[in-house]
C-alpha cells in the first residue's frame, strides 16, 4: 500500500485506492466489535456444549443437559395435568349437581368453558351458542335429545350422525326427493306445521295438512308434534327452528330431508372437558330462559 492519503477530518489513513471518487479509511476495527464477537461466540460455545447441536453422520451431539424439545413439552404437560388434577378428576367423576354446589369446582368450569367452547363449538353453534341456520341454538332450552346432563354428555361423546361407532342417528326423511309426498302435499303440511306454533292458515288447508301429518310425520314427531327425544326428532310446536320456520326453509326440510352432523368429541375432548361444556350450556340455557 504505497499511495496513502490521510483523511483531513479524522486523520486516518486511506487504503490508497479510489473508485470513481470513493475512498476508504483503513480505520481499525473498533474494540466494541471484537468484544461482541467474543461474547456471542462464547455464548454459542456454551449453548453447543449444553444443548443438542452438532450433527455427526448418523447421530448428533446430545449436549450435557440432555434436553430435547419433545421431552420438555411432555414434561410441562404432565406437570399441568398434575396441577389441574385437583379439580379435573373431581369434575370428571362427580355428578353435575355436586359440581354446581361447589364453588371451588365451578371456578375452573367458568374459567375454562369460554375458550373451550370458542375453539371447538363456536364454529357451528356461534360464539354466543345461539346457533344459526342448520345448527341448533344451545341456549333456547329446546333440546333435540333432552337437556339433562347425562344426555348432553352422551351427545357430546358420540355426536349425531357422526363417524363415532355409537353415534346418535337422526334422520329427517326426504319426503319429496324420495317421492313419498307430492309437492302440493308438502306445501300443505308446511302450513299445518306452522299452525302448530301459532301461525294462521286457512282452516281447510290445516285440516288437510293434519291428515298428511298424522300418516307421515307423527311416528317421529309425535301425534301432537312435540317431538321425540329418543330419535332426536325436534319439537314442532315451539318456535325454535334449526333450519328455519319460513315457508321455503321448511319446504326444503321436508322435500330434501335433513341429517345434521354433530361431531363426536370423545377422542378430542376429555370427560372433564365435556362435563364443563355441559354445565356451561345448561347454565347458558337457564340464563336465556329467564
Amino acid at each position: 500500500m504505497s499511495v496513502k492519503d490521510r483523511d483531513p477530518l479524522t486523520g486516518h489513513q486511506t487504503t490508497g485506492h479510489e473508485w470513481n471518487g470513493i475512498t476508504e479509511l483503513n480505520t481499525r476495527v473498533p474494540r466494541a466489535v471484537w468484544f461482541f464477537v467474543i461474547v456471542t461466540h462464547v455464548w454459542a460455545l456454551v449453548v453447543w456444549v449444553l444443548m443438542p447441536a452438532w450433527p455427526l453422520v448418523t447421530t448428533y451431539t446430545k449436549g450435557l443437559l440432555g434436553t430435547d424439545q419433545r421431552e420438555e413439552v411432555q414434561e410441562s404437560i404432565a406437570v399441568a395435568n398434575a396441577i389441574r388434577d385437583d379439580w379435573s378428576s373431581l369434575i370428571a367423576d362427580l355428578p353435575v349437581d355436586e359440581i354446581r354446589a361447589d364453588p371451588a369446582l365451578m371456578a375452573p368450569v367458568n374459567d375454562t368453558a369460554h375458550a373451550l367452547f370458542g375453539d371447538n363449538c363456536a364454529g357451528c353453534h356461534g360464539s354466543d351458542a345461539a346457533g344459526g341456520p342448520g345448527f341448533p341454538s344451545l341456549v333456547d332450552d329446546a333440546w333435540l335429545w333432552g337437556g339433562d346432563a347425562d344426555t348432553i354428555m352422551e351427545t357430546l361423546r358420540v355426536g349425531i350422525n357422526a363417524t363415532h361407532p355409537e353415534t346418535r342417528y337422526a334422520q329427517m326423511l326426504a319426503f319429496g326427493e324420495q317421492g313419498i309426498l307430492p309437492r302440493d302435499d308438502i306445501r300443505t303440511v308446511v302450513d299445518y306445521v306452522q299452525s302448530l306454533s301459532g301461525t294462521g292458515a286457512p282452516a281447510d288447508r290445516i285440516a288437510a295438512g293434519a291428515e298428511i301429518y298424522a300418516t307421515n310425520c307423527a311416528s317421529c314427531h309425535g301425534e301432537d308434534g312435540t317431538g321425540m327425544a329418543e330419535i332426536g326428532a325436534p319439537n314442532l310446536r315451539d318456535d325454535f327452528w334449526i333450519y328455519g320456520g319460513g315457508d321455503e326453509a321448511m319446504f326444503e326440510t321436508i322435500w330434501g330431508g335433513r341429517q345434521g352432523w354433530m361431531p363426536a368429541w370423545e377422542d378430542r375432548l376429555t370427560v372433564a372437558d365435556r362435563k364443563i361444556l355441559t354445565i356451561y350450556l345448561q347454565d347458558r340455557a337457564k340464563e336465556t330462559a329467564q
Binding site: A122, G123, C124, G132, P263, R268
Partner: peptide, 27 residues
C-alpha cells in the same frame, strides 16, 4: 387463521362447504 394440522373430522363436510362458501356465514 388457526392451525389445521389436526383438523380432520373436527367438523362436518357440510360445515366445511358452507364455511368455504362464505366463512362469515358461520364465523
Amino acid at each position: 387463521g388457526p392451525d389445521l394440522a389436526r383438523l380432520g373430522e373436527k367438523y362436518s363436510d357440510d360445515w366445511h362447504v358452507r364455511h368455504l362458501v362464505n366463512p362469515r356465514d358461520l364465523v
